[in-house]
Design a protein around this nucleic acid. Structure first.
Lengths: 127, 127
DNA sequence: CGCACTGTAGTATTCGCAATAGTACAGTTA
DNA sequence: TAACTGTACTATTGCGAATACTACAGTGCG
């Protein structure tokens, strides 16, 4: 179900968190969709249930999922606040990238070209 | 000379590496400019010389600096290869950001608007 | 009820790796 | 020679991720 990279310096629970976040933000996991149980996911990924639980607890604290004792974990409805946060972060990220490009000697015109190009090559599905 | 964030999960030597990289890529550190000695930098940042040495060794392996035994560490001339690598990475980063924006419901038109906006607000120097 | 599932909480332990501490050796320069 | 430089070790500490294990609480179903 998920892709773990043991070479990645980032901890496993973070990798799991990010993948779930992405799925929720992109609508792959609709609201109230049930997630695999802590034990099941742990079994599938061959790691400890505690690791999954940490990921789930964090995600709940951040508003991406909600937990119901005895029932399971479910994708939360994507709040406007969460969307706005994400947008803000993406904007910041975009600006950082553009700044780095500028300082590397790439003109704004070239940058715009890159942007258009990125859209034209959509379907390659980066990441 | 450098800014260390002990709250950052990233190791110290990585933070140092990145800051030096950025300075070199942006021309703040011209070719053959001498860097502080391992021991001096360690003293300034109040950490162990080994930590600095690790950063320097990595940077040399990546082609950002060169070391001369008995003399010191110096910024390398920014090779075309290094620039190209950096450009490739930025392009990839840009595309990932744009893809995420798309999936968040931001149209290409809006995205372009963001890009222009980012340039207009230059001077705020993000990061 | 009893059973099998779910989440939750806690402790103890292992393990990896960043970072420290310390010593030693080699090359440069005045 | 003296005081710098880089480099190479080994040993140790310390932190946090991940494991292992146990236990308890709520849900759903036959």
């Amino acid at each position: 179900m998920f892709q773990l990279d043991y070479g990645d310096p980032r901890p496993l629970f973070e990798q799991i968190k990010d993948q779930i976040k992405t799925m929720i933000l992109r609508g792959v996991l609709p609201a109230n969709q049930q997630l695999p149980s802590v034990r099941e996911m742990a079994s599938n990924l061959t790691l400890n249930p505690n690791t999954i639980q940490k990921a789930y607890r964090d995600l709940e604290a951040e508003g991406y999922i909600y937990s119901v004792r005895g029932k399971g974990n479910f994708a939360a409805a994507l709040s406007q606040q969460l969307k706005t946060e994400q947008q803000t972060q993406l904007k910041k990220q975009l600006k950082e990238t553009l700044t780095a490009m500028l300082h590397l000697g790439i003109s704004p015109e070239e940058a715009l070209q890159w942007v258009k190009e990125a859209y034209h090559t959509e379907g390659g599905e980066p990441q």
